[in-house]
Design a protein around this nucleic acid. Structure first.
Lengths: 340, 340
DNA sequence: GTGAAAGCGCTAACAG
DNA sequence: CTGTTAGCGCTTTCAC
């Protein structure tokens, strides 16, 4: 029933060669050891004939290298993260690495567990988007000598490189754009207020307002969810002093907000202008296509991988590199902002 | 700099015990070997103190078990797949398995590579959503003794279990619902015509029409993309005999179709009714909320995992189980279908 | 109650 | 140009 697994030994036996020789051929260092082409051909032939597949666990154990990168992310159901993971996965596979994924469901405890599990599996490196505020488990990795890089979310006070969107800049720009269109009563609907992207975005919003000598009009909400956007907007629109524009700090928040607006009979953009972050594909197809800050996802992914693999594969030399990278986002203009 | 990694040997040395004893305690079989509580405590204490993390590669090699499940999917950027992966990932982690992910970008060749790579890593099992028509590489897995289960997409002529939506049933029901609302000119916008879900959905559409003695009005398109939906609809609406309803076979197709409709000045549902598959969250927030077939994603994921783990962990007994599972989807009614 | 030793599959000195 | 051998970290028979 179960086929006898072919190992390097099987090949050595059927070809009448030694393990070493077979191993060398298989590792492509045949010429380096001046193995005869005949021998090499014989090995290759057998390998194919027997459908030999090298045992990674053994290599891993021997080489102390797993050719695997751990990916720790908050929640795949969020299209923004899914997108990043998709890109990372493909690039990494091209480079010969496998990807071990963990979806932490935005839960710190799961994240700690996940990081330990990955550590046990001898990851060559890890890319993480932190779910919470904890960071000890991540610093431990560094001490253990496992390269880590943060993407999207990060901690400024930890010696771990990151590459992320310049959230501050994005929020600043879009808020100023709203103001340039005559809006002063701009409400900001935020996400989880403990994560860096949110903090920076709110900061950008506040600074833009102040720059033009306005006080921040309104900041509300507490999670990057649909529900939060919905509730906050309901609340917001019952105030005496209503906003003329809403800045949603994520597309999920936006959707909730739009639903609330529609329910209460407000038209976008005639009654109220709106802008958002993330630039999901579907923004084009909403009742009113929504102007959005677009995060440079592909750039973030590729740069992060470059950073990580450099660390992993660096044979020597300690080139001091830029390791805290923020990429400025662009604004995709659609029709949800009206000049007043 | 780099900390000396603690192994089972380190613990044996610092406690003055043997490798065997330490290993036994760590594997929770202390009582089975009647190891004294004192010894056990000492080992546990050291383990914690040194922050010992077992080396999975070594266990893997020894036990011929990796405690890892390979996940092969077409494309994570597709929210439908991302969702499934998110659920699978979480359930599997609860059960103590790691997840090795591969995003094949809907490319058969990448899929074959991925499957081999996973095979080399001694996956305990694999869950795959095939990207194409190839299946030899998957049958080989079975022969190698690695349990596999398909989800969503599957092959009927291969002895590999699957769990998927009853696509046929979903299409049949929604088409009949459209007909019950007086529609006869129903255009069907399909996806990749070689994958099972698409084939079955089209079949359902055709059979529903025939059942009511109508010929299928129109079948067009060739991929589950936004572009395909857009182009097909543009074409469709230029015909002399226009449809009164469109059945998009995925949400991506739907979005493209809606864009084309809007551009050409057709209103939904006044001028044309529309329905779709997948039931993405954002359907509620489109200009006109769209009625959709909702796939039982959570059920599919949990059942698939149960199936797989049963196979993996089954110590003996060959209980003949139902292994080709189709789950009927439900229809989520919104406002995109008008009674004529 | 505890330990010694073999071996999983592979690679890399070292030895010709 | 090719082979012998040790050992990566762990589990497990067998032995006391």
């Amino acid at each position: 029933m179960q086929l006898e697994t072919t190992t390097i030994k099987t090949i050595a036996e059927t070809t009448g060669l030694s393990l070493t020789t077979v191993s060398r051929v298989l590792n492509g260092v045949a010429k380096k050891y001046r193995i005869s082409t005949a021998t090499e051909a014989k090995v290759l032939e057998e390998t194919r004939r027997l459908g030999y597949i090298p045992n990674q666990a053994a290599r891993n154990l021997r080489l102390k290298k797993s050719f695997a990168i751990g990916l720790v992310i908050p929640n795949l159901a969020n299209p923004f993260f899914a997108n990043i993971v998709s890109i990372i996965n493909q690039v990494l596979h091209e480079r010969g690495y496998s990807v071990i994924l963990t979806d932490c469901n935005e839960d710190e405890k799961l994240e700690v567990e996940a990081v330990n599990a990955l550590s046990a599996r001898n990851m060559d490196g890890m890319i993480v988007i932190p779910s919470g505020k904890k960071k000890n488990h991540l610093e431990l990795l560094r001490q253990k000598g496992i390269p880590v890089v943060f993407i999207d979310r990060y901690f400024d006070d930890v010696a771990i490189p990151y590459v992320a969107t310049n959230h501050y800049d994005g929020a600043l720009k879009i808020t100023e754009y709203l103001m340039a269109n005559g809006h002063e009563k701009i409400a900001c609907l935020q996400g989880s207020n403990h994560v860096m992207p949110n903090v920076k975005r709110v900061q950008g919003y506040v600074d833009a307002m102040k720059k033009h000598e306005k006080e921040p009009f309104y900041i509300g909400g507490n999670s990057f969810t649909f529900e939060s956007g919905y509730l906050e907007t309901k609340l917001l629109m019952q105030k005496y002093d209503k906003p003329t524009a809403i800045l949603a700090l994520s597309d999920t928040i936006l959707l909730g907000s739009l639903k609330a607006l529609a329910e209460d009979g407000y038209r976008v953009p005639e009654d109220i202008s709106i802008a958002t972050f993330d630039n999901s594909v579907y923004l084009d197809f909403l009742a009113c296509p929504v102007t959005s800050v677009s995060q440079p996802v592909t750039d973030i992914a590729t740069i992060a991988i470059k950073l990580l693999l450099d660390k992993i594969e660096k044979t020597s030399g300690n080139v001091v590199e830029q390791e805290k990278i923020l990429i400025s986002p662009s604004i995709i203009h659609r029709s949800s902002i009206l000049n007043r």
